[in-house]
């Protein structure tokens, strides 16, 4: 395997480059954005990158859709794409939708309880709660000693 940067190698693996760019974009959004909904969006982009990776792997050059003729006489000269990754990714998409909806539902509840969906604000509230608990705790314990 040659690791030199020749054009055919780069172009031949274009689906992988796209996959990496999309994946990194998604992860970056999760890391950098404080808005909870935006994080879910980032997560979705990240997952979509994986879907594309799988689907592009299943593609065979010049291959057609993997559908058998109704008479079941398969022409050995016809090249079919690999259907299995598509099937797998259908499952993964379902999982992704479930995750997204659950995440959004949680955000709704968080909005009700915390009054904000910005991470900074939420952590401020949580920090205050923890500090209050800690103060209460240490006071009571020192009183006891």
């Amino acid at each position: 395997m040659t690791a030199e940067f020749d054009l055919p190698f780069i172009l031949g693996h274009v689906n992988y480059w796209l996959f990496i760019v999309l994946m990194m974009t998604g992860l970056y959004i999760v890391v950098a954005k404080g808005n909870l909904v935006k994080k879910i969006v980032g997560l979705n982009i990240f997952q979509t990158a994986v879907f594309m990776l799988y689907i592009s792997v299943g593609k065979v050059s010049g291959g057609t859709a993997p559908i058998f003729p109704t008479d079941m006489n398969v022409d050995p000269n016809v090249v079919y794409s690999n259907p299995l990754p598509h099937v797998l990714i259908l499952t993964a998409i379902v999982v992704g939708i479930a995750t997204t909806s659950l995440g959004l539902a949680l955000i709704v509840r968080i909005r009700e309880q915390f009054g904000t969906i910005e991470e900074e604000g939420i952590y401020q509230i949580e920090r205050d709660m923890a500090a209050e608990e800690y103060r209460l705790h240490s006071e009571l314990m020192s009183e006891r000693r």
Binding site: V31, A32, E119, A130, E133, Y134
Partner: peptide, 20 residues
């Protein structure tokens, strides 16, 4: 320290950084 309750509420972002 004893106040780690406060410090260890890490934002999701930094958790993901660790994963990376």
């Amino acid at each position: 320290g004893p106040a780690s309750r406060i410090a260890l509420n890490w934002p999701t972002g930094s958790m993901v950084q660790w994963v990376a």
